[in-house]
Amino acid sequence: MTQTGMRRVKRAGGFGAAALATVLGGGLLTAPPATASTENFIQFTSDALYFVDTCYEWQGPEGIEKKNYCHNAKAVGTTWKANFPEGATGATVKVTFAGYTGGPPKTVTVDDADKNHCYQLKGTWLNYADVLRVNC
Score class of each variant (00 low, 15 high):
129 A>W: 00
51 F>E: 14
25 G>L: 04
56 Y>D: 01
83 N>S: 10
110 V>W: 06
64 I>M: 09
133 R>P: 11
116 N>W: 02
73 A>Q: 12
134 V>H: 03
126 L>N: 08
61 P>S: 05
116 N>Y: 02
34 A>Y: 15
107 T>D: 05
25 G>W: 10
32 P>Q: 10
120 Q>K: 13
118 C>H: 04
113 A>E: 04
81 K>V: 08
42 I>Q: 02
34 A>V: 14
136 C>D: 04
22 T>G: 04
121 L>N: 06
30 T>W: 02
125 W>T: 15
71 H>Q: 03
96 T>H: 08
11 R>G: 08
6 M>I: 13
66 K>F: 00
72 N>S: 15
75 A>C: 02
60 G>Y: 03
82 A>C: 04
111 D>A: 13
37 S>C: 10
24 L>F: 10
14 G>Q: 08
68 N>T: 04
113 A>Y: 10
44 F>I: 08
92 T>W: 03
26 G>Y: 05
66 K>P: 02
49 L>H: 14
81 K>S: 09
84 F>Y: 02
89 T>E: 09
77 G>H: 00
28 L>V: 13
126 L>Y: 11
98 A>R: 14
72 N>V: 15
135 N>H: 15
18 A>Y: 05
130 D>R: 05
103 G>S: 06
2 T>E: 10
126 L>I: 02
73 A>I: 07
81 K>R: 14
111 D>P: 11
72 N>L: 15
50 Y>F: 06
75 A>D: 12
61 P>Y: 11
128 Y>Q: 12
57 E>T: 14
22 T>C: 06
127 N>M: 13
34 A>P: 15
22 T>F: 09
61 P>K: 07
1 M>Q: 10
98 A>K: 15
135 N>M: 14
31 A>H: 04
26 G>E: 03
41 F>Y: 13
104 P>D: 12
39 E>R: 14
86 E>G: 12
8 R>D: 00
11 R>S: 01
5 G>Y: 07
51 F>G: 07
114 D>W: 09
101 T>E: 13
63 G>S: 04
68 N>S: 06
58 W>H: 03
46 S>R: 00
24 L>Q: 02
92 T>V: 03
1 M>D: 13
56 Y>M: 07
83 N>G: 06
49 L>W: 13
43 Q>Y: 09
93 V>T: 01
110 V>Y: 00
76 V>P: 00
23 V>N: 11
59 Q>T: 05
95 V>K: 10
33 P>V: 07
65 E>N: 12
94 K>I: 10
66 K>W: 02
19 A>T: 12
100 Y>W: 02
11 R>P: 08
67 K>Y: 07
63 G>E: 01
66 K>S: 09
134 V>Y: 09
47 D>R: 05
25 G>Q: 09
105 P>E: 05
78 T>F: 12
1 M>H: 07
10 K>T: 08
35 T>P: 08
133 R>N: 13
54 T>C: 13
12 A>Q: 10
132 L>K: 15
86 E>M: 12
8 R>Q: 02
120 Q>C: 09
115 K>F: 07
46 S>C: 05
4 T>W: 08
32 P>N: 01
41 F>T: 06
8 R>I: 01
16 G>Q: 00
51 F>L: 14
125 W>N: 15
2 T>A: 13
105 P>Q: 01
108 V>N: 08
103 G>C: 00
116 N>V: 12
60 G>H: 06
124 T>E: 11
38 T>I: 15
50 Y>Q: 01
14 G>S: 07
133 R>Y: 07
79 T>Q: 12
28 L>I: 12
105 P>H: 02
